[in-house]
Amino acid sequence: MNTNLDQIAEKYDSLHEDWKNLETTVRHKEFQNFIKHVNSYDSVLEIGLGDGAFTELLNSKFKRTIAVDGSSKAIEILSNNDKLKEVEFVHSYAESIPANIKSKNIVMSHILEHINEPIEALKNIKNNNMLDETVLYISVPNAMSLHRQVAVKMGLLNKETDLNDRDITLGHVRVYTPETLKRDIISSGLNIIEFGGVMIKPLTNRQIEKDWNKDIINGYIELGNHYPEICGDIYIIAKK
């Protein structure tokens, strides 16, 4: 077991307490990006659970929700959530999910940046957990986000792909650019159906949460539809 995952899960709420409302809003946008590609609501497989906000959205829409995480602590926390009582939790790393767990819909929101060998993990998911018609949604933080580019100009980062303190605290092992995300997905043998961004983010999460109202946030979310390469988060819809 990776004890670092358990430590992160145990204090995850405190790690993003200052911008939890913003994160919830962004997760709703991610959900919309994913759900428009779904053609069956029988089941969904979520890999990597975070604070469970995405899990709640999935569980409200699908007949069966299977939630996989490498942290037993994350599963323990979320299994006590009354909104997730019907969810089937599985303790497994993304690289080794049992082959008998398959779904027409798979979500990997903010998990690929945590995985040491992402291409191998994606290959295993493609071969073991995806059906021919499966829709796979993948989202990650974007190294080319405006706020990271500004950080380079300010001297806070040497380059956009450097890990900052928050990345390290959250257990990130890399920060993807649009190009490197596409490269890893193609290298795993998957086909990219759609690439997009979630929200233009010129400031840090804490600054946005403190100073912006919902109208401003929603405006920058909509703007992100037109400029995905510089959004705070980027996503890909993939199939076999």
Rank of each mutant, 00 (worst) to 15 (best):
N2H: 01
T3C: 04
N4V: 13
L5V: 00
D6P: 01
Q7E: 15
I8E: 00
E10I: 03
E10S: 12
K11A: 13
D13S: 14
H16R: 11
K20F: 13
K20I: 15
T24M: 12
V26N: 03
R27F: 10
K36M: 11
D42A: 12
L45Y: 01
G48K: 00
L49R: 00
G52L: 06
T55R: 03
L57S: 06
S60R: 14
K61C: 09
F62G: 00
K63E: 15
V68C: 02
S72L: 01
E76A: 00
N81D: 14
K85H: 08
A94C: 14
A94V: 12
A94P: 06
I97Y: 03
I101Y: 08
K104C: 11
N105Y: 09
I106V: 13
I106G: 02
M108D: 03
H110T: 11
L112M: 08
L122N: 04
I125S: 06
N128W: 11
N129C: 14
D132W: 05
T134F: 03
S139Q: 07
A143G: 15
A151I: 04
A151K: 06
K159Y: 09
E160L: 08
T161E: 14
N164L: 06
R166C: 07
G171N: 08
V173E: 09
V175T: 09
V175L: 10
Y176H: 07
T177L: 08
I186C: 04
I186N: 09
L190Q: 03
N191Y: 15
I192Q: 05
I193F: 10
I193D: 09
G197K: 01
V198I: 15
V198N: 05
M199W: 05
R206E: 15
R206C: 08
R206A: 14
Q207R: 06
Q207L: 14
Q207D: 14
I208H: 05
K210Y: 13
D211K: 10
W212L: 06
K214G: 05
G219S: 12
I221L: 05
Y227G: 08
I230R: 01
C231W: 05
G232F: 03
A238R: 04
K239C: 09
K240V: 11
